[in-house]
């Protein structure tokens, strides 16, 4: 032992840590931080036009922001984004919770769970471009599978144009989002349930709780953090929704019905006029909106008991300090 003790030098492994993190830091600085800061800056400038290489700050620094907020198409796109996100997310979390309840039910073992999970997750693995092409074929007009089925069921007597009707287009995009993401949400929720201490379920069983009671009184409250995670990631993803709306119907869809804010931002920057400054301003506005909404979700989902007890602790501490001061005086 003494021999080997001589060989061991006091090596600081910290430097290797720094060394190994250099690639990430460099990549992050170049491809993440710099573009973000640059975007934030050009929102205040006159940077537009495809040949532009230089830019000047505007006299009225918020002109682009005011322009975007008053832009009717931007307002519509914001509405579209929220509508499409909601009609996709509410059924999505509902179905995911239902599947989670079934798959984690302790009294009924479902056979072939692994296969089902893979099948539910599958749409998420397929590239968005492929999904968009698939769905534009499925909802094809005047001939397409959906129209054929509806016609043979005598629900419609002439083909329905899903890509010209504004609401139909919105619903289809929301459905694609739902179909692509419910499997992912289910897997996340199942993993959340598996993380709950099984003793809780056992004691509930012993106490004679029904599966329904177990789900609503134990499973759901214990999943608060994982639900918060799902809600926040889905909110951010939903408000940045770009690929399906862009690829399913080009250029914002019928009467701009599927134009989300991200599609709008893309159009500002790259579809002819190259208004980088306005696109940057719109991006920053979206950043603020997403931050506010996320904060709101955090607030809604906070643990009320915990925050109340924290408050009590704070008050107690304050009282304690005051009492000490009183003693000193």
């Amino acid at each position: 032992m003494s021999q080997s003790g001589k060989q061991v030098k006091s090596v600081s492994y910290a430097k290797y840590g720094y060394l190994f993190s250099i690639p990430f830091i460099v990549t992050f600085l170049i491809f993440s931080l710099y573009p973000t800061v640059f975007t934030a800056i050009i929102g205040f400038t006159d940077f537009k036009g495809v040949t532009a290489t230089t830019f000047n700050f505007l006299k009225d620094p918020f002109a682009n922001f005011v322009g975007i907020i008053n832009n009717v198409t931007f307002q519509n796109s914001l509405k579209n984004t929220l509508i499409i996100w909601m009609i996709n997310f509410i059924p999505q979390i509902g179905l995911a919770l239902l599947l989670t309840a079934w798959f984690t039910n302790r009294s009924r073992k479902i056979r072939g769970q692994g296969a089902f999970k893979v099948l539910f997750y599958l749409p998420n693995i397929i590239t968005a471009a492929t999904v968009a092409i698939l769905y534009s074929a499925i909802f094809g007009y005047p001939v397409g599978p959906v129209n054929d089925i509806l016609a043979s069921l005598h629900l419609i007597n002439k083909p329905f144009d899903f890509s010209t009707d504004p609401w139909a287009a919105k619903l289809v995009v929301a459905f694609i989002q739902f179909w692509m993401w419910y499997g992912y949400t289910t897997i996340i929720l199942i993993s959340g349930v598996l993380g709950i201490n099984p003793e809780l379920f056992e004691s509930a069983e012993i106490d004679g709780a029904t599966p329904r009671q177990t789900f609503f009184r134990i499973t759901l409250p214990c999943m608060r953090t994982i639900l918060l995670f799902t809600l926040i990631t889905s909110l951010i993803g939903g408000l940045n929704m770009f690929d399906i709306p862009k690829l399913y119907i080009w250029n914002g869809g019928p009467a701009n019905a599927t134009m989300t804010t991200s599609v709008f931002i893309y159009a500002q920057a790259f579809s002819g006029s190259y208004m980088y400054n306005r696109a940057a301003a719109a991006s920053m506005i979206m950043f603020v909106i997403i931050a506010i909404l996320s904060a709101f979700v955090f607030y809604l989902m906070r643990d009320k008991y915990e925050s109340r007890s924290k408050k009590l602790i704070r008050m107690a501490k304050r009282a304690n300090r005051k009492a000490k001061k009183g003693v000193a005086v």
Binding site: T164, D165, N251, A255, A267
Partner: peptide, 22 residues
């Protein structure tokens, strides 16, 4: 130089008109 974008917007609105939405 803006034809591609403008044509798409125009043809979309024309379809809205012929479909009776506008």
């Amino acid at each position: 130089q803006y034809d591609e974008t403008i044509n798409n917007i125009w043809r979309d609105q024309v379809r809205q008109y012929t479909a009776g939405n506008l």
